[in-house]
Simulated scan of single mutants.
Amino acid sequence: MYKPISLFIAFRYLWNVRLPTFKKIITILSVIGISISTASLIIIISMMNGSEENFKKNILSFTPHLIITNESQYIKKSDFPKKILKLNNIEKISDFIRKEVIVKSKSNITTAEIIGIDSTNYYNVNNYNIKNILHVLQPGYCNIIIGDQLAKKLNVYIGDKIKLILLSYKNIFFSKKNLNPQIFKIISIFSTHNEVDYYQILMNKEDSLNFLNYSKNYITGWRVWLKNPFFLDVFQIKKIADKFVLLDWKTQKSELFKAIKIEKYIMLFLFLLILLVAILNIFIILNIYILDKKNDVAILKTQGLSFWKTMLIFIIFGSGTAIIGNMLGTMISITLILQNNFLKFFINIFFDDIDMKIVLIPSQVFLINFMFTLFAIFATFYSSWKTIQFKPAKILDNE
């Protein structure tokens, strides 16, 4: 006798060479459906992970995760709230100089943002891809580095000079007292393929202090870089620095952050739909098999098969389809992600010039498979419970 009997019978129902062609097709289609659902979900979530990585690299590498300042954006260095250093999510803190200015060249005029840098800003300035940037921007020479898109707008090149005009907001009228024009020389142009290329101007911190007429040991504020910017708790920091103004990256990039959140909610909704379709598929197939095999179930009961072993047959049968489909879908998705040239080629058919990064996280793959298998087992309980309601004498009455 085959043992365990429930497992043997379940596998016989799941697949054997004597199964009718129609039943084989149903089983194959159910496995394929779950495989496609699992593979598509893993690939979509991996693409979302890649989007988040690109967001962190291209946006959050230049945008401070948190800015600590006051209402006037003019603060003394010694006023720094040191208790913030005790927070676990803090990676780097540096003071900074920042101010919006009017930029005038021979052919055009626009607004921009000056950033004063020195050795304390080393964590951030590396992202501009300029060698020896701190050595190039020596204090006292009035040299600047601007973004390539800003240079195109102003129609200027390396070696050209532009005029920076500081506009005071204390008076809404333009007058010579409010303007502080100064000539600066462009010694380099950076290109980050980021939005900062359109408006940022880098200069030495001492030059920026002189240009802005800042007193010694006064700054605009502090830039805070986090280990994980998506887990920024502004309210926790606000308790520590309640006398300061906090500007987090979510506020500065609110529209983009909302778009990412909406995308996540859509993906969650899609996951629930895919899961629901897979569960309904298993539920329908299992009910068809139970109705088809009710005579066999009745005979097994008359032979002394217990209620829970009868249920176990169809639980194994239903969950076996899900497990096989999950394994197959997982292998397909991992293969496609590792050989991502095919996925990129397929994406570029519909969207031109998109460099989509795909990041596979093993814990997410495990969670998807676990959730599919768990809900598939739950989906078999009702149908399997119906089998123990069969009355063998009634079913076999006309046999």
Rank of each mutant, 00 (worst) to 15 (best):
N155R: 05
I84W: 09
L166P: 03
D95P: 10
L137Q: 03
N132R: 11
G116M: 07
S119E: 15
K83I: 09
I117W: 01
Q73H: 07
N180T: 14
L179N: 04
N127M: 06
S78E: 15
V125S: 02
S94A: 12
N124W: 10
N143K: 11
N127A: 15
N70I: 04
D148R: 04
I115M: 07
Y123S: 08
K152H: 03
K176E: 15
G140R: 09
K99S: 12
G159M: 11
S105A: 08
I144A: 03
V156N: 01
L166Q: 10
V136P: 01
G116E: 12
K163V: 15
S119Y: 12
L87E: 11
N88T: 09
N132T: 05
L137I: 04
I162C: 03
D160T: 08
I162K: 00
N155Y: 00
A112W: 01
E113Q: 08
D79Y: 03
L150T: 07
Y169T: 06
H135Y: 09
N121Y: 02
H135T: 13
K99D: 05
N124D: 14
Y122N: 13
K176W: 02
V125P: 00
A151N: 11
Y122I: 15
Y169V: 04
K170R: 03
T69I: 03
S119N: 14
S72Y: 07
S72G: 06
Q149K: 15
Y141H: 09
K83E: 13
N143A: 11
N126H: 06
F80S: 06
K92R: 13
F173W: 02
S168N: 15
S175L: 00
K163M: 14
K77R: 11
S119R: 14
N88K: 12
P139E: 10
I114M: 10
Y122K: 15
D79P: 00
Y122W: 08
E71Y: 07
K152P: 00
K163N: 10
I146H: 09
K131A: 09
I75F: 10
V103W: 02
F174N: 05
L150W: 04
K99L: 04
I145E: 06
C142K: 13
I133D: 12
L134M: 00
S78N: 15
I97P: 07
F173C: 04
K86H: 04
K131D: 13
Y123Q: 08
V156G: 03
Q138C: 06
N180P: 00
L150E: 02
D148E: 09
I158C: 02
K86N: 12
I144W: 05
D148T: 04
K176S: 12
I115C: 02
N129I: 14
K83S: 13
N124K: 09
K104C: 05
G116L: 13
Y141G: 01
F96P: 02
S168M: 03
K170P: 01
I165T: 11
N126T: 13
N132L: 10
L166W: 03
Y122M: 11
